[in-house]
Amino acid sequence: MPAQNPDPDPRSSTGLEPGGGVPPGETPPGEASTSSGAGPWERRRRGWTKGPLFAIVLITLMFAGFFLGYAFFLAR
């Protein structure tokens, strides 16, 4: 039994232009997603970003205050 080509014959397929191109509107819709996370984009909450920013600023101010106090102590 000879193997048959599984591809459809392009001469009898609808929606094809000469040369094998597909005109606009003839493309099939995208695949349906089966994952649970698919859907429209939603903006994420920015709940914890203020905490690390506050910690960085606090550590920087403590660092600068220590060296300013040390410089003031040495200048006396």
Rank of each mutant, 00 (worst) to 15 (best):
P18V: 06
P10K: 01
G25H: 00
S12T: 15
I59P: 01
S13W: 12
L16G: 01
D9C: 02
F63Q: 07
R46T: 09
R43W: 09
R76H: 12
L53T: 10
P6E: 01
E31H: 04
G39K: 00
W48C: 03
W41A: 05
L61W: 08
R76M: 13
P29V: 02
E31Q: 08
F72Y: 15
R46C: 06
D9E: 08
P28N: 11
R43I: 03
A55F: 06
E17N: 14
P18I: 05
F73T: 11
I56L: 14
T27A: 13
R45M: 08
P29T: 01
G25V: 02
G19D: 06
T27V: 08
V22S: 04
R76Q: 14
P18A: 12
M1C: 10
P23S: 06
L16M: 09
S12L: 12
D9F: 04
M1D: 13
I56P: 00
G20L: 04
R11I: 00
F67A: 01
F63M: 12
K50R: 12
G19W: 03
Q4D: 10
G47Y: 06
P10L: 02
R45Q: 09
L61N: 06
T27S: 13
W48Q: 07
A3N: 08
P2D: 13
M62W: 10
L68R: 03
P40G: 05
F54N: 06
G69D: 04
P8F: 06
S36I: 10
F54K: 05
A32R: 14
L58W: 08
A3E: 11
T49K: 06
G25M: 01
E42M: 09
E17W: 06
A3T: 09
G47V: 08
T34N: 12
R43K: 14
L68W: 09
K50S: 10
P24Q: 08
V22C: 07
T60L: 14
F67V: 05
E26M: 13
P52Q: 02
Q4T: 11
P6N: 02
F73G: 11
R11H: 08
R44L: 05
